[in-house]
């Protein structure tokens, strides 16, 4: 069934004064757009912007410090020990027994998740996460606490720089189903314009920036 396809395209072409055989014309892409100025210390800006949107940020020497940092985070929040971890981080030196680590997508009652990410954008302090077998999307939205590990060299200046990296990634792996850009915990202002965190997604986003 062709539904309204031809009718809609015909109506558009009629409005533009074009015939159907012009459909395969070449259109010159639009010029490069203005980008906001972003100061040079990208990591500093990335952290500052994230914190301004109610995320918490910690700087680590290396990704090997992640398990210890997670243990301290759980202690601080006095939370049960179940943690679900993206398969992409399963190879970290997780200690046996200090908490109950599961690898995979989020269960319905999940409270804490740990994921890697694809890039960070200094412009607005945003995390870019891809949905892949090693990084399931449910980890970003179902739990109350979302812990994210990012390497310093993953932080780029503008969104356009992240898209450039994405295009390179796509050329090898194919476009992921979802690209999630996340800038802090979930929030709403739908009741009397009062900002309230944790509307539907995580109430807390904790970002660990590893030097390497």
């Amino acid at each position: 069934m062709r539904d309204g396809r031809d009718a809609v395209l015909t109506a558009i072409r009629a409005a533009l004064g074009r015939s159907a055989n012009e459909a395969n014309r070449e259109v010159a892409p639009p010029a490069r757009h203005v980008r906001p100025a972003v100061s040079d210390d990208l990591t500093e800006r990335f952290q500052r912007k994230l914190e301004s949107r109610a995320a918490t940020v910690e700087r680590l020497g290396s990704a090997h410090e992640v398990p210890g940092t997670v243990a301290r985070y759980l202690q601080k929040w006095n939370m049960a020990s179940r943690v679900v971890c993206a398969p992409s981080l399963a190879m970290l030196p997780w200690p046996k027994g200090s908490f109950d680590l599961h690898v995979g997508p989020a269960r319905r009652d999940e409270r804490v998740s740990i994921t890697s990410c694809f890039a960070g954008v200094a412009e607005t302090g945003s995390l870019v996460l891809l949905s892949t077998a090693a990084t399931p999307t449910t980890l970003n939205f179902v739990p109350e606490h979302h812990l994210v590990v990012i390497r310093r060299d993953q932080i780029v200046r503008h969104f356009e720089d992240a898209w450039e990296r994405l295009r390179r990634w796509n050329a090898e792996n194919g476009m992921p189903r979802t690209v999630n850009v996340i800038s802090g915990p979930s929030r709403t202002a739908d009741i009397e314009q009062t900002i309230q965190l944790g509307a539907h997604g995580p109430r807390h986003v904790h970002v660990m920036i590893a030097e390497k």
Binding site: R53, A133, P176, R177, T178, V179, S183, S186
Partner: peptide, 12 residues
């Protein structure tokens, strides 16, 4: 906004 989500097709 907090979430910008770019969706492309069904699950792989």
């Amino acid at each position: 906004e907090t979430y910008t989500t770019i969706s492309t097709g069904p699950r792989r």
